[in-house]
Simulated scan of single mutants.
Amino acid sequence: MLRMLPFLLVLALWIWAFIDCLTTPEEEVKHLPKVVWIIIILLFGEVLLGPIAWLAAGKQRGGARSRNVPWPSGQTAGYPEYERPRSRSGAPDDDPEFLASLKKDNQKHEDMLKQWEADLRRREEQLRDKDEPEKP
């Protein structure tokens, strides 16, 4: 079993480098086209030259990679107000805007409930008037 360990490690590195190369976006591949890197990994995988070359020189890693964040850190200028990232400190119930929006929503729901109750009373009265025969 111990004799198989080096072979399994080489195979695992080979498979990992191949999958990593396949899933890397084209703009992150350095020095050669992606197809050439795949061929190098496949052809020289058994002697570890292909996977080691891919790890060393084939892909942008660490600090060289461009950050894919929606907003530049620390910058909010230049964005419209509705797209500007908001930094929230504390709990939402400490935010006066949030509390005001809750009050507004509650008032809207109370008004809607009053309308429904008034409509229900009106309909009940209409049904009662239809059911009662007219008295002479």
Rank of each mutant, 00 (worst) to 15 (best):
Met1Glu: 10
Met4Ile: 08
Met4Thr: 10
Met4Arg: 14
Leu5Gly: 03
Pro6Glu: 03
Pro6Lys: 01
Pro6Ala: 06
Phe7Glu: 09
Leu8Ser: 11
Val10Ile: 15
Leu11Thr: 05
Ala12His: 09
Ala12Trp: 09
Leu13His: 12
Leu13Phe: 14
Trp14Gly: 04
Trp14Ile: 00
Trp14Glu: 04
Trp14Asp: 14
Trp14Arg: 08
Trp14His: 15
Ile15Asp: 07
Trp16Val: 07
Ala17Glu: 02
Cys21Trp: 04
Leu22Lys: 00
Pro25His: 07
Glu26Lys: 15
Glu26Thr: 09
Glu28Cys: 04
Val29Leu: 07
Lys30Thr: 15
Leu32Gln: 12
Leu32His: 10
Pro33Phe: 02
Pro33Arg: 06
Val36Arg: 03
Val36Gln: 06
Ile38Lys: 11
Ile39Thr: 14
Ile40Lys: 03
Ile41Val: 15
Leu42Pro: 00
Phe44Arg: 14
Phe44Gln: 11
Glu46Leu: 13
Leu49Pro: 00
Pro51Asp: 09
Leu55Thr: 09
Leu55Arg: 07
Ala56Trp: 08
Ala56His: 05
Ala57Gln: 01
Ala57Ser: 09
Lys59Tyr: 06
Gln60Arg: 15
Gly62Arg: 07
Gly62Phe: 12
Gly62Thr: 02
Gly63Tyr: 09
Arg65Ile: 14
Arg65Asp: 03
Ser66Pro: 02
Asn68Phe: 08
Asn68Trp: 08
Val69Cys: 06
Pro70Tyr: 04
Trp71Gly: 01
Trp71Thr: 01
Trp71Ile: 01
Pro72Lys: 02
Ser73Ile: 15
Gly74Val: 04
Gly74Met: 03
Thr76Asn: 01
Thr76Asp: 02
Ala77Thr: 11
Gly78Lys: 02
Tyr79Ile: 02
Tyr82Asp: 12
Tyr82Val: 10
Glu83Gln: 12
Glu83Thr: 03
Arg84Met: 12
Arg84Trp: 02
Pro85Val: 01
Ser89Asn: 13
Ala91Lys: 04
Pro92Thr: 05
Asp93Lys: 05
Asp94Tyr: 08
Asp95Cys: 04
Pro96Phe: 02
Pro96Glu: 01
Glu97Phe: 10
Glu97Val: 12
Glu97Lys: 13
Leu102Val: 15
Leu102Tyr: 05
Lys103Cys: 10
Lys103Tyr: 11
Gln107Leu: 12
Gln107Cys: 04
Lys108Gln: 12
Asp111His: 07
Met112Val: 03
Leu113Thr: 07
Lys114Glu: 14
Gln115Ile: 09
Trp116Ala: 13
Trp116Gly: 07
Glu117Leu: 15
Ala118Asp: 10
Asp119Gln: 13
Asp119Cys: 10
Leu120His: 07
Leu120Arg: 09
Arg122Tyr: 13
Arg122Gly: 04
Arg122Pro: 00
Arg122Asn: 13
Glu124Cys: 08
Glu125Lys: 11
Glu125Arg: 14
Gln126Phe: 06
Leu127Gln: 12
Arg128Pro: 00
Lys130Phe: 09
Lys130Ala: 12
Lys130Val: 11
Asp131Tyr: 07
Glu132Thr: 13
Glu132Pro: 00
Glu132Asp: 08
Glu134Asp: 09
Lys135Ser: 10
